[in-house]
C-alpha cells in the first residue's frame, strides 16, 4: 500500500464518521425535547457536516480523479463506507442519542487533539478547527449524561440502558490496521493505544458522576474498517443517496 492509498482510506474513514453522524443528528430536527435543545442538536449536526465536507474534499484531492466531496459522500456502495458502527446506531431515544454523543465526542476530543500534531498539514488544520467544536459537543454530552443519569429514576434507567446497548460498539473505536500502522510510521496517523486507556478513564469518571454503572466487559462488535456494517447504514444511505441515484445526471 502506498502512503497515498493509506492516506485516502484514513481520511475517508474520518470523513464518514462525520458524514453519518451528521446525518443521524439531522434526523432529530423538529424532534427535540424542548425547542432550545432542537437548535442545539442542529448545531452539532452542522458542525459534523462541515467537517465531513472538509475531509471528503481532502480525500477527493488525495485520490486525484477530479471528484467532488459530494461524489464521495453520495456515490459509493455501502461496502465502501468506513464510519464506525457506533456512529450509525439509531436515535432510539434521547438517552441513546446522548450516550452515542458521549462515547463519540470523548473519543474525538482525544483523537483530534493528537491529530492536530499530524505531519499531514491538511489533516492537522482540519483537526485544529474541529477540536473547538468537539469541546462543545463533549460538554453538551457530558452535561446531559449527568442530568439523565442523576435525574429521575426513569431517565436513569433509560440512560443506563443506552450505555449498555451501545457499549459493544465502543471497542471498534480503538482498532488499528495496516492503514494506521503505515501512517503512524510517517507521523500522520494517531496511535490509538494511549487514547483507549484515557477514553476508558474519562468515560468512567463521567458515568460514575452520573450515578451510572460501567458496563461489564463484553464482546466488541467489529467490521467497519472493512466496510461491514450493521443493517442501519443501508437505510441511512438509501435516504441520503435517493436524489443522487434517481437522477444521476442532475446537478443540485
Amino acid at each position: 500500500m502506498t502512503t497515498k492509498d493509506a492516506a485516502y482510506t484514513y481520511t475517508i474513514r474520518l470523513g464518514d464518521d462525520a458524514l453519518i453522524l451528521g446525518h443521524r443528528l439531522s434526523e432529530l430536527c423538529s424532534r427535540g425535547p424542548i425547542l432550545e435543545e432542537d437548535l442545539a442538536l442542529t448545531n452539532v449536526a452542522l458542525d459534523m457536516i462541515g467537517r465531513a465536507q472538509a475531509l471528503l474534499k481532502y480525500a477527493a484531492d488525495i485520490e486525484g480523479k477530479g471528484k467532488t466531496d459530494d461524489d464521495i459522500a453520495y456515490r459509493r456502495a455501502e461496502i465502501n463506507y468506513y464510519n464506525h458502527l457506533l456512529i450509525e446506531q439509531p436515535n432510539a431515544d434521547f438517552a441513546h442519542t446522548i450516550a452515542r454523543q458521549l462515547f463519540v465526542s470523548v473519543f474525538e476530543f482525544l483523537f483530534y487533539t493528537e491529530l492536530e500534531k499530524s505531519r499531514d498539514e491538511t489533516l492537522a488544520a482540519i483537526a485544529s478547527k474541529t477540536i473547538k467544536e468537539i469541546k462543545y459537543h463533549m460538554q453538551h454530552a457530558i452535561d446531559w449524561t449527568l442530568r439523565l443519569g442523576d435525574g429521575t429514576s426513569e431517565s436513569h434507567n433509560r440512560m443506563q440502558t443506552a450505555v449498555n446497548d451501545l457499549w459493544m460498539y465502543t471497542g471498534e473505536l480503538f482498532e488499528m490496521d495496516e492503514v494506521d500502522a503505515q501512517l503512524m510510521r510517517d507521523g500522520i496517523a494517531v496511535d490509538l493505544i494511549p487514547i483507549k486507556a484515557q477514553w476508558h478513564n474519562d468515560i468512567k469518571t463521567v458515568l460514575s458522576k452520573a450515578t451510572l454503572l460501567i458496563p461489564e466487559d463484553t464482546y466488541m462488535q467489529t467490521g467497519s474498517k472493512k466496510g461491514i456494517h450493521t443493517e442501519n447504514l443501508g437505510h441511512i444511505l438509501s435516504e441520503m443517496q435517493y436524489l443522487q441515484r434517481a437522477y444521476p445526471d442532475a446537478v443540485w
Binding site: 439531522s26 434526523e27 457536516i49 465531513a52 465536507q53 471528503l56 459530494d70 453520495y74 443540485w252
Partner: peptide, 14 residues
C-alpha cells in the same frame, strides 16, 4: 433534510 442532494444543500436546509 435526510434526502438533501448535496452536503451544501443539507447544511443550508438545516
Amino acid at each position: 433534510i435526510t434526502r438533501a442532494p448535496s452536503l451544501r444543500a443539507k447544511q443550508i436546509l438545516l
